[in-house]
């Protein structure tokens, strides 16, 4: 299949950036990243600068293959990352627009690569358990209700890619932050520091300059792990609880 790729090129954070059009020959068995590899091979052969994009696992678990494809983070399909998107979902002759995450708190480093360390700082502010939980326990030593375990697991599937903030009309990071708060807070080991964690992580999220959730639901539609915005509601009530209901937090 013959495609035209309209790709965002930006030398560095100072550069203004612009779109460039490229012709590329792909086949429908390729993943989107493999198609990008082919394009980069062509560019290298022509002694042009290849397109910088992030990738690592290529199996949907690392959260690094981030690009907005035709207006949607990770492309047109729900519940997949860019590396899991295959060219058979495009048609011969298509023009495909590829842009980086456009979120102020994620400055562009080069082309499609953005700096997501704002997410790292949110985690560093409290997304961990500091109490000693000892040796790995027998799986059934601490009984956990099935529903809670399921809810915590669903939140824990977050791969931190940032598609939620990229998709959100307000560039809000609340789906990410709430998932990271809840996958710990719903379980007994994480519950101990829950109030403190909610406060710290929400404060850090605000400091990074992300927008505020308008409950549009765009994030859960574009989340490759289909994490629900009910996590945001849970974070909101934990936050209110941590301010008004707890003498442990500050």
């Amino acid at each position: 299949m013959d495609l035209i790729l309209k790709v965002w090129r930006q030398k560095n954070n100072k550069d203004n950036g612009r779109f460039e059009n490229y012709k590329v020959k792909a086949n429908e068995h390729m993943s989107f990243l493999e198609m990008m590899d082919v394009l980069n091979e062509d560019l290298l052969a022509k002694k042009e600068e290849p397109i910088a994009f992030e990738h690592d696992c290529r199996e949907g678990i690392c959260g690094s293959c981030n690009m907005v494809i035709d207006g949607r983070p990770h492309g047109p399909n729900n519940g997949t990352t860019t590396c899991q998107l295959h060219m058979r979902f495009f048609k011969d002759g298509d023009t495909i627009t590829v842009e980086p995450w456009r979120v102020k708190a994620f400055p562009v480093i080069k082309d499609l690569v953005v700096d997501r360390s704002a997410f790292d700082r949110i985690i560093q502010s409290g997304g961990y358990i500091s109490v000693n939980t000892g040796q790995a326990q027998d799986a059934n030593a601490i009984p956990i209700e099935k529903d809670l375990a399921g809810q915590a697991f669903d939140a824990a599937t977050c791969i931190g890619c940032g598609a939620c903030a990229a998709a959100c009309p307000n560039a809000s990071a609340m789906l990410f932050t709430s998932a990271k708060i809840n996958h710990l807070g719903l379980l007994p080991q994480g519950e101990v520091e829950h109030s403190k964690r909610v406060q710290a992580m929400v404060t850090q999220m605000d400091e990074e300059g992300f927008g505020m959730c308008s409950n549009t639901g765009a994030c859960e539609v574009d989340c490759p792990k289909e994490i629900s915005i009910s996590n945001i509601a849970l974070m909101n009530r934990s936050y209110v609880g941590s301010v008004f209901g707890s003498d442990k937090g500050s």
């Binding site: 309209k6 102020k104 927008g211």
Partner: peptide, 9 residues
């Protein structure tokens, strides 16, 4: 919070 550049699509 979106930044200087908005999405083209």
């Amino acid at each position: 919070a979106r930044g200087a550049n908005r999405y083209a699509v």
